[in-house]
Design a protein around this nucleic acid. Structure first.
Lengths: 238, 238
DNA sequence: TCTATTCTCGTACAACGTACTGGAATGAAG
DNA sequence: CTTCATTCCAGTACGTTGTACGAGAATAGA
């Protein structure tokens, strides 16, 4: 058999992907790079949303043929994982562990939120993510270190990290959804009318009260901070 | 103009969808129903996952032509919303508010988790959901009532509901992902090897410790309960 | 019976992910 | 330099998706 069933990275498993294999000694030299392709996909998602990230669009942005991408990532889902780990690299890998683990953890959550606001597609992409890449692992390492003074066992610390990430992702999803609702004002108005109609039916007194309450004048940061405090100050060492 | 640009429900906004309009006095009688189509989509998702829910597959299950579905839902995303509200109807709409709001809230979270385990596609579907339907609103109403003794203002109670739902969804996603990993054992083993390799590189001492710790012998329910306690007992009235 | 209305659904199309494959580039071997 | 295995590039093509279009069937008021 003169030919393998595929070339490049297409045959590696989802984890071998991260264990970089060295360049082969023979054969044509790669014209692009996984890094460049990933960066193009990220900037595309930043600019036009996750649904704009198609193999064709990414290839066009890189200046490559569509099928060339498959030499660098075996499929689109893998490209998404690469994107996630790419932006995870923006998270500070080393930070001061002050010893006040609750405060440190809040800091970390704020960094995660900032990252997700910078890349609004990230929460959605995280939902289907499988294996953490090196940048995500470096960040995890830091979070585990920050949590060490808590006295919690290692497994629990990992779970807390996962839950914190999910929490932040959920919150940011909500935040950005509300933003989107306000610039497509027609939709928002229709939704408000619908909710008002439901509230007026007499069967939803609690909802009616919530809608009647004056909108609070707080920044999104403050709201996030309040929920974060509730979550983290509830974390118990027992 | 003898013809509107569309027929049936296709012209209603995403909220008018829920405000049922009565049957027109003229014209052909509908052969199916939104209810039946939604139920078919739900059972399909239950059996084969959310990605198996294609318009063609749903139509086949209903016994209708593909395009007939568009008389009952303007597009696929709307069908997803209908599915979400459909299963939301399985949540008990009336429950005993014991006055112990923390305990009641934990009960509610357990009910949500049970629902999501019964419909594993639900967390993913919730992520893109826009407007709550009548069943979701009835449930919200109940949660708000349960939270009344907490003294929190209405807006905060709504936010807590949203966060709790996101928390449960995140947790269940994790739970079912681990299940899936265990029946595609090859993947799981490869991932374990990858993580072990990373842990062995010396730069991830915390991760190494987490992996070295013996796997805890606890039920998923117990783990969920622990996290839930942390989250809810941290909720403060201040 | 006519006609306006409403629903059904076959056909068709654009966009997607990606399998296939032949050709171009490269480095080692002779 | 030539030869050749190896590796990568990318055009073409296929199957699947959501859904626009529009002709025909059913229904009810005139």
């Amino acid at each position: 058999m003169t030919r393998e069933t595929e070339g490049g990275a297409a045959d590696v498993g989802p984890q071998q992907l991260w264990l970089g294999s060295d360049r082969p000694r023979r054969g044509r030299r790669p014209a692009y790079s996984r890094e460049a392709i990933t960066a193009a996909a990220v900037s595309l998602a930043d600019a036009e949303g996750l649904e704009a990230v198609t193999m064709r669009a990414v290839a066009a942005r890189v200046g490559a043929g569509v099928m060339s991408l498959y030499s660098y990532a075996p499929d689109k889902e893998t490209l998404l994982e690469l994107m996630v780990d790419h932006v995870s690299g923006e998270l500070p890998a080393t930070g001061q562990a002050t010893g006040h683990w609750r405060a440190d953890l809040k800091d970390i959550a704020h960094q995660q939120r900032a990252l997700m606001l910078r890349h609004p597609w990230l929460p959605a992409a995280l939902a289907t993510r499988r294996t953490p890449g090196p940048n995500a692992l470096a960040f995890l390492e830091r979070v585990l270190a920050v949590l060490r003074p808590s006295g919690l066992d290692a497994a629990t610390r990992v779970e807390i990290f996962a839950q914190l990430t999910a929490f932040v992702a959920g919150h940011v999803t909500h935040e950005t959804a509300q933003d989107r609702a306000s610039w497509s004002a027609g939709r928002a108005a229709a939704e408000a009318r619908y909710l008002a109609a439901v509230a007026a039916d007499g069967h939803h007194p609690e909802l009616a009260e919530a809608l009647a309450a004056p909108a609070r004048r707080v920044t999104p940061e403050a709201t996030f901070g309040r929920f974060l405090n509730r979550l983290i100050d509830g974390l118990d060492t027992g």
